[in-house]
Design a protein around this nucleic acid. Structure first.
Ligand SMILES: NC(=O)c1ccc[n+]([C@@H]2O[C@H](COP(=O)([O-])OP(=O)(O)OC[C@H]3O[C@@H](n4cnc5c(N)ncnc54)[C@H](O)[C@@H]3O)[C@@H](O)[C@H]2O)c1
Ligand SMILES: NC(=O)c1ccc[n+]([C@@H]2O[C@H](COP(=O)([O-])OP(=O)(O)OC[C@H]3O[C@@H](n4cnc5c(N)ncnc54)[C@H](O)[C@@H]3O)[C@@H](O)[C@H]2O)c1
Lengths: 214, 214
DNA sequence: TCAATATCGATATTTTTTTATCTATTATAG
DNA sequence: CTATAATAGATAAAAAAATATCGATATTGA
């Protein structure tokens, strides 16, 4: 007697969806009509059962002996992730990493459009970087309200991370993509996704040490 | 009747170690002698039991009513990850992202030292970027052998990713930190860590869609 | 038409990860 | 010296994820 919400987390599944999407789009380019879960699994070195199970989260259904309609599956994944029409975002901290992200065209394929950037350094403001305007941090609340932007990408130095995050929250930002290694404290209702590169490096280091260690 | 290997995967644990390390180093700076698992948990919004369990993977032991010796714990984590002395690495693809990574000083704190970069674009070679020399791709095998470098960081365009990875493997690279969204095919014995940003974006999108969707 | 086969989707099982509970230890206060 | 509270660490339980099994179904080719 338990009403299950349509998606009961399944974070690992969600993380794999972009990989499926990437293969599927390539198949679209090659004018495939159908694709089997088995094929997707081979391309991505995954288990076929896992692929089929993952795809069910999007609501897509396949047909036996045929597979999944490529176009429908792309649409289903995009709809599930909300990637049909781009979410507009701000980026704060136009340094090494921030500049790289501003220049990455791939985000547009992932339902993300960075509309403006912000920085504390006067030398960086009022210039366009990769076609994106850079404003002083003070303007963020006003612009967030005017443009109704709700996502912020955080690429400031560690030391400034929490303070800038607080500012984003005050400005009405409800989703923070956090590239700093800081564990941000945010009020409920704000979703934070941490993209700490050192996690991946730790895994690689551990594997490496294990590979030659024994 | 089962001999367990010293580390039986526990990937989520390994991914959390750098966060512990970061807090611990800050405490070192403030001259703390001990720290409780409870405190670490609070700082990182984790469960205290999980913190203690995670730390056991490094072999560190704490004392009741006191906690863990800060210095010893830092040493234990670094030893577990092999971060005491830096691993030397090559970076291939000095574009937006590659340049950002070359300029990131934080890697040195994570046992990683990028000693050289490579690119296919003649305009980029023979200049130093962030103090690192950039060579043509052709030199990679020779330099890898001479410098005994075994780790490669891959930041080339998707289209070139597999070919460059193959080249890295031929050159004797056994660990690839892959920032492209391509699922690389590599021979056994080569460890690959994928750092696909779109995974994190997918999670953020799903959370966001779920937060206002219902 | 019919057998063979590739495939999906449902169910079951196993493994991994997280969370909870309980016991023992130790510093500290009285 | 003893009681108390904070804490580690062991064990157990629960939850989540990955993997395996199996029946049903559609396509293909005999
Ligand atoms: N560069 C990388 O490859 C890399 C890799 C992993 C993690 N990171 C993390 O990303 C973050 C940024 O790294 P980076 O190398 O780009 O640093 P950076 O110093 O190159 O850039 C930081 C930028 O933020 C701006 N800034 C500083 N304080 C600010 C504030 N209060 N408000 C707004 N802007 C402010 C600075 O002017 C600068 O432009 C850091 O937290 C770092 O740990 C970077
Ligand atoms: N820029 C980002 O923020 C970002 C974000 C997510 C993922 N990525 C991924 O990182 C990779 C690089 O992205 P980028 O934005 O830095 O691209 P980029 O085009 O700016 O840089 C690519 C670099 O690789 C070099 N290159 C091309 N072919 C090569 C080859 N065969 N051998 C060696 N070098 C070669 C190019 O000369 C260029 O310098 C891509 O796979 C992209 O999907 C980038």
């Amino acid at each position: 007697m338990e009403f299950e919400s349509p998606k009961m987390s399944r974070l690992p599944t969600i993380r794999r969806l972009p990989a499926y999407l990437r293969v599927l789009r390539q198949l679209q380019g090659e004018a495939w009509e159908h694709v089997s879960g088995t094929y997707l699994a081979e391309q991505l070195s995954l288990d076929p059962v896992q692929v089929r199970k993952d795809l069910t989260i999007t609501g897509i259904v396949g047909t036996p002996r045929v597979g999944f309609m490529v176009d429908d599956t792309v649409a289903a994944i995009e709809a599930f992730l909300g990637w049909q029409n781009a979410t507009e975002a701000f980026l704060v901290g136009v340094g090494n990493l921030g500049t790289a992200l501003l220049g990455y065209a791939g985000f547009e394929r992932h339902g993300l459009k960075i509309v403006a950037a912000f920085d504390a350094d006067p030398a960086k403001i009022d210039v366009e970087i990769h076609g994106k305007p850079v404003y002083p941090l003070e303007k963020i609340a006003d612009l967030a309200a005017r443009l109704r932007v709700r996502m912020g990408i955080l690429t400031v130095p560690e030391i400034a991370a929490q303070a800038v995050a607080d500012r984003l929250v005050v400005a009405g930002i409800t989703a923070i993509w956090n590239f700093t290694p800081v564990a941000l404290k945010t009020p409920g209702g704000v979703v934070v996704q941490n993209e700490d590169l050192s996690c991946g490096l730790a895994v690689l280091s551990a594997k490496l040490r294990n590979a030659d260690g024994s």
